[in-house]
Amino acid sequence: MLTFEHLSKTYADGTRALSDINLTVHEGEIVSLIGGSGCGKTTLLRLIAGLDRESAGRIRLDDEVLSGPHPAVGIVFQEPRLLPWLSVFDNIAFGLDGLSATEKKLRVTHALEKIGLVEHADRWPRDLSGGQQQRVSIARAFVTNPKVLLLDEPFSALDAFTRASLHEHLLGLWEETRPTVVLVTHDVQEAVTLADRAVVMQPKPGRIFDELPLTLSRPRDRTGLPFETSVRRVLTALDHSLKAPQAQPQRERDRQAAALWW
């Protein structure tokens, strides 16, 4: 279980990226963080991954307070971030340093089978397409069997077909160990395809606007009516979240006008 308690992050330049986030993600749940740009989605993910430190509040994984990168937390970045000097095989094995060679080979080969890149094991990352590279990056995060997997818009740079097939690969890998997944996305369809719950965020400062359970049965039929309804619900919530901050300057101006009046 992943818990955020009064989590806030203010950057050195005074930007309030996150303000008082309270959220519980259950074990094996897929939660999708969705929201406009600058609402702190990626910041939240970087805090969980231990790449940045929170300004206030804390993140707990089960009973442990997270401080810094944790072995049970894996992350897939927006870009594949493969190490160009390692073969596909060695890239996937990058986090398996403590294991024996046989165990390593077993796990990596299994992951390669899952992502359908067995025949590419010995190639350089530069020889792969963008979608293939991202698959390798997902496999690299999965082979360490993390309890929590963080996905930072991992499919945003890919075309719609590649994205759909990657969703399948991801769910295939997820089925095996059922880690807790926090998926950052700005694609509502993607959120509804993958997540059990959509958390809609709001910018300036980044905070949670609304939570919507997505209870459709898996595998999800992207063309069915229930899917459409869910997409519409999330879109409506997103719409409200983006409109809300505009109301604020309006109020501010009213108050200033009132001050002048008095």
Binding site: A49, L51, G68, P69, R81, L83, W85, F94
Partner: peptide
């Protein structure tokens, strides 16, 4: 920096980071 972060995520020590990421990257 993005590749260095990959090293951080996998909790490499300073020496490991130098050997596994910095050295090959500067070659």
């Amino acid at each position: 920096r993005k590749l260095v972060e990959v090293g951080h995520v996998f909790r490499l020590s300073r020496v490991q980071l130098a050997r596994r990421i910095l050295l090959p990257a500067v070659l």
